[in-house]
Design a protein around this nucleic acid. Sequence first.
RNA 1: CGGGCCGUAGUGUAGUGGUAGCACGAGUCUUUUGGGAAGAUUUAGCUCGAGUUCGAGUCUCGGCGGCCCGACCA
Length: 474
Amino acid sequence: MQFTKRDLTKKSEDVSEWYTRVVALAELADYGPVKGTMIIRPYGYAIWELIQADFDRRIKANGVQNAYFPLFIPESLLKKEAAHVEGFSPELAVVTIAGGEELGEKIVVRPTSETIMYQTFANWVQSWRDLPLKVNQWCNVVRWEKRTYPFLRTSEFLWQEGHTAHATHDDAYETVLWAMDEYADLYREAFALPGYVGRKSASERFAGADDTLTYEVLMPGGKVLQSCTSHDLGQNFSKPFGITFQDQDSKTQHVWQTSWGLSTRSIGALILAHGDDSGLKLPPRLAPIQVAVLPIKGADPARISELTRPLMHAGVRVKVDDADHESLGSRINTWELKGVPLRMEIGTRELDEGVVTLVRRDTGEKFQVAHADLAQRVVEVLDEIQANMLCEAEDFLRDNTRDALDYSAFKEILAGPRGFIRAFWCEDPACEAFIKEETKATTRCLPLDAPEERGSCVRCEKDAKHRWLFGQAY
RNA sequence: CGGGCCGUAGUGUAGUGGUAGCACGAGUCUUUUGGGAAGAUUUAGCUCGAGUUCGAGUCUCGGCGGCCCGACCA
């Protein structure tokens, strides 16, 4: 170990400092040499691989196929959809010189792949029989952000972007909903991160989309984070890119499209949401190491591997820390820092008594389990930890979602605990902009399950039909 | 991109314009190990460039990078 937990600031004292330190100390990532870039270290990348494996399985089950499109996009292609290029141009990285020569046409490093994919989709789609087309790619994208933060906002990040084309808007919209369902389920079940699913306001929508669904999660300190999105692109791209098909009546029509993405930002959310003063706290389903086995003082390595073998057969990710030159306390602190959900201590005492000592990272609870029951109990306890972490996060979300009946209450919440605020909004962008200007809070979404009601806008008091969720974004 | 703070060994820090030091870490050896072990020994550093100066880690300017605040951020 190069670092020790001694260097970790307490999360309870300074979340921001804690976050940057824990990213380094837990060996998740280092800074790259170019501003806003990040080196994802093996332990951090292993988390990403678990996220990938889970989501990849989900989309393939729905007939989505993986492909890969180029990193470079001709500038002219990006310009084809007006709202899209306008939204992205402030944050583009552009290649102007290549091979030692000034380029005739500039090349853009992809900020997202709609344009380069859809040019090709125009060739792939000819007939209604070619639809729906469902393609996904796992790749890097570049967005030159002014203010960066490891994982949460980096100039280059990794993500998946799914892109589909459909014969009808209904069919497309079903996919928009399906993708968001999968994200929400992934966040709840794997990340143990509950959140709100809803619709973005016009001003917060993806550049080029008719409608954007989002999953919004709550972070410590009461700030909120957009953690993934699913877009209804309508025919906004199929028209300029000429993606047409002949339907069953031989009529030529433009396809209806969707796109949806989940990025390495999700790892930032995971770190922030669950960590504590001792470091990371990973939910078992996304923990690269689920059980850290610590042999103590002369415990026979052969007997320890006898005990861990059934665990591995049960699919548990186990790491035996046999660095016996390090003291027990030091090893314990290392694995706590790295957020391993379950620690197993085995010494001569345990071996003699036919038990092992287990310690939960989430609760600190310490208990003993007989050798014979070990694999079964470990699997059960990991499930309990996963469930408990979700439960705690749900309590936190519920306790930090407040209704604001008038503007002074609204401002009071933002000056105090922040979190999500439910309030009527007239849906006038000017009103939204005013609130943002004055309170730094933006509309996060209109929850999909929000009923239509009669109320008056929290700021202007004009008629409002819905209670929107507001929050201060990360 | 604007304002503020900052950049010294792997990490954290000290360092009045005049010999770069300490702790932890890392390597080797010995003894240790039930919540951050000890001794011996070795190792490693001034972000980059220009300027001022006899002399710059220290002063000035610029670049690059980081943190905080703003603007921006599917």
